[in-house]
C-alpha cells in the first residue's frame, strides 16, 4: 500500500477512534489498537507504540483544562503515580517476553472489561471517612461545583487503591493503553474518591504513566514515525471533536451501548486471532 493511501486511511480511522473514545469515556487507545491490528494488519508492537503516543496527547490535552479548574487532586495523582510508573516500566519490560497471541488475548479481555465499565451507571459518592493513611499523605481534598460551592471529601483504603494502580500501570505498559477504566476502579470503587475527581485525576496520571513506558518503547523501535504521525494527529482531533459534542449532547446513553457492542465484537475478534495464532 502506498504511504499516501495508508496515511489517509489511518488518519480517518484514528479520528473516528478518538471521537468514539472521547464520547464514551473509553479513551482512544482501546479503539485504535484493534483498528490497526484487526482491520489494517499492522504488527501489534507498532500498534501499541502508536496508541501509547496518542494516549499521551489526549490525556495531556484534556488534563490541562481540568487541572486549572481545580477538580484534579494533584496529591492523589502524584502519590498514585509511584504505583503506575513502576507498573508501566514492569509492563513495558514484560511486553518483550510475552508472546504476541497472549498480548492479543489479554487486550481483548481488558477491552471487554472497559466496555462493560463504560455502561456502568455513575453514582456520585462522597465519603467523609478519612483513613489514617489518607490523613498522613494529605490525600483528602475538596473540589468546586459549577454553582460555586466547595465539596469536601475523604479518601479510604489507600493501600488497596495503590495496589490496584500498580496493576493498572502494568496493563498500560504492556498493552499501550491508558487503562483509564482500571484507574477509575482503583479510585472510585476502592478509595471512594468522588467520580468527578477520580476521572479527572485518572486522566492527569495517564500521561505520566504512558511516558514512563514510552521511553522504553522508543528505544525498542515500537514507535514508528510514519505510523504514529497519522494516529496521534487523528486521535487528538477526534477527541477534540468529541469533547465539543459532549458539551451539547448530554444523553449519549444509546451511543455507549452501540459502541460497547462494536468494541466487544472487536475484542472477541482479537481474542480469536490470538488463540488461533493469526496475530
Amino acid at each position: 500500500m502506498s504511504v499516501y493511501l495508508l496515511t489517509i486511511i489511518i488518519l480517518a480511522g484514528s479520528y473516528f477512534a478518538g471521537l468514539l473514545g472521547s464520547l464514551t469515556g473509553l479513551g482512544g487507545g482501546v479503539v485504535i489498537i484493534p483498528l490497526l491490528t484487526v482491520l489494517l494488519h499492522v504488527d501489534i508492537h507498532y500498534a501499541i507504540g502508536a496508541s501509547l503516543i496518542s494516549v499521551i496527547a489526549t490525556s495531556s490535552g484534556s488534563a490541562a483544562a481540568y487541572v486549572r479548574e481545580g477538580i484534579t487532586n494533584i496529591r492523589i495523582g502524584m502519590f498514585l503515580e509511584i504505583a503506575t510508573t513502576v507498573g508501566a516500566l514492569v509492563g513495558a519490560t514484560l511486553s518483550l517476553y510475552i508472546h504476541t497471541p497472549i498480548i492479543a488475548v489479554l487486550f481483548g479481555v481488558i477491552l471487554i472489561f472497559s466496555a462493560l465499565m463504560s455502561l456502568k451507571k455513575k453514582v456520585e459518592n462522597i465519603s467523609q471517612t478519612e483513613s489514617v493513611w489518607a490523613e498522613k499523605l494529605k490525600l483528602n481534598g475538596s473540589y468546586p461545583t459549577p454553582d460555586g460551592q466547595v465539596v469536601k471529601y475523604g479518601v479510604r483504603k489507600v493501600g488497596g487503591g495503590f495496589f490496584m494502580m500498580l496493576f493498572a500501570g502494568i496493563i498500560s505498559g504492556l498493552l499501550g493503553i491508558g487503562s483509564g477504566s482500571l484507574k477509575v476502579v482503583a479510585m472510585d470503587s476502592i478509595m471512594r474518591i468522588p467520580f468527578k475527581v477520580s476521572t479527572t485525576t485518572s486522566n492527569f496520571m495517564i500521561g505520566v504513566t504512558a511516558a514512563a513506558s514510552a521511553v522504553v518503547y522508543l528505544q525498542r523501535g515500537y514507535i514508528d514515525p510514519g505510523l504514529s504521525m497519522p494516529v496521534v494527529l487523528g486521535v487528538l482531533l477526534g477527541a477534540l471533536t468529541g469533547s465539543k459534542i459532549l458539551v451539547h449532547a448530554k444523553s449519549s446513553g444509546w451511543l455507549r451501548w452501540v459502541f460497547a457492542v462494536i468494541v466487544t465484537i472487536l475484542a472477541v475478534q482479537m481474542i480469536y486471532n490470538g488463540i488461533t495464532g493469526k496475530i
Binding site: 500500500m1 502506498s2 504511504v3 499516501y4 495508508l6 496515511t7 489494517l40 494488519h41 499492522v42 504488527d43 508492537h45 507498532y46 525498542r220 523501535g221 514507535i223 514508528d224 514515525p225 510514519g226 505510523l227 504521525m229 497519522p230 494527529l233
Partner: peptide, 21 residues
C-alpha cells in the same frame, strides 16, 4: 508529516512485520 508525505508519499509501506524503526 507534510514533508514525509511530500518526499515519500508514493513509496509502498507495510507494517505487517515488526522490524523496528
Amino acid at each position: 508529516g507534510v514533508i514525509y508525505l511530500y518526499r515519500h508519499g508514493s513509496s509502498t509501506v507495510s507494517y505487517r512485520q515488526f522490524q523496528g524503526v
